[in-house]
């Protein structure tokens, strides 16, 4: 994975994915939202949203759950605890950059291995 010289998490540091993460972070811990509602909130095409969600899911920042309501398939998307921590770190790094502070000390999930995250 590319390491951003600013120390900002490259998974989140893209406009579309940042908007996705901010929106999901507004839900209560453990909360989730259907794909169409998220798409409506973000005003993104289904394909574009799906692409960005896949990247976030690969980083295990979001959890995608497919279920059924009656006969209709429904997809719920929620921020994982790892994703929530990554977003908190991202905003902390942003503020540190704007304040002119060194960002090397900011804790980043990018430095953890998959085995460390449960």
């Amino acid at each position: 994975m590319t390491v951003d010289p600013t120390g900002l998490d490259p998974v989140i540091h893209a406009q579309a994915r940042l908007r996705v993460v901010v929106t999901l972070a507004a839900l209560p811990n453990g909360g989730s939202i259907t794909f169409p509602r998220l798409q409506q909130l973000l005003d993104m095409t289904a394909g574009n949203l799906a692409t960005h969600l896949r990247k976030l899911e690969d980083a295990r920042y979001v959890a995608i759950t497919k279920t059924h309501e009656g006969r209709l398939p429904v997809t719920f998307i929620g921020l994982t605890s790892r994703g929530r921590v990554a977003f908190e770190d991202y905003t902390a790094t942003l503020r540190a950059l704007l304040d002119g502070e060194p960002t090397g000390g900011a804790r980043s999930p990018r430095t953890t291995t998959p085995q460390e995250d449960s």
Binding site: L27, P28, G30, G31, S32, I33, T34, P36, R37, L38, F76, G78
Partner: peptide, 9 residues
């Protein structure tokens, strides 16, 4: 209308 599609338990 506000909570449509939201699952927050």
């Amino acid at each position: 209308s506000r909570r449509a599609g939201v699952l927050d338990g």
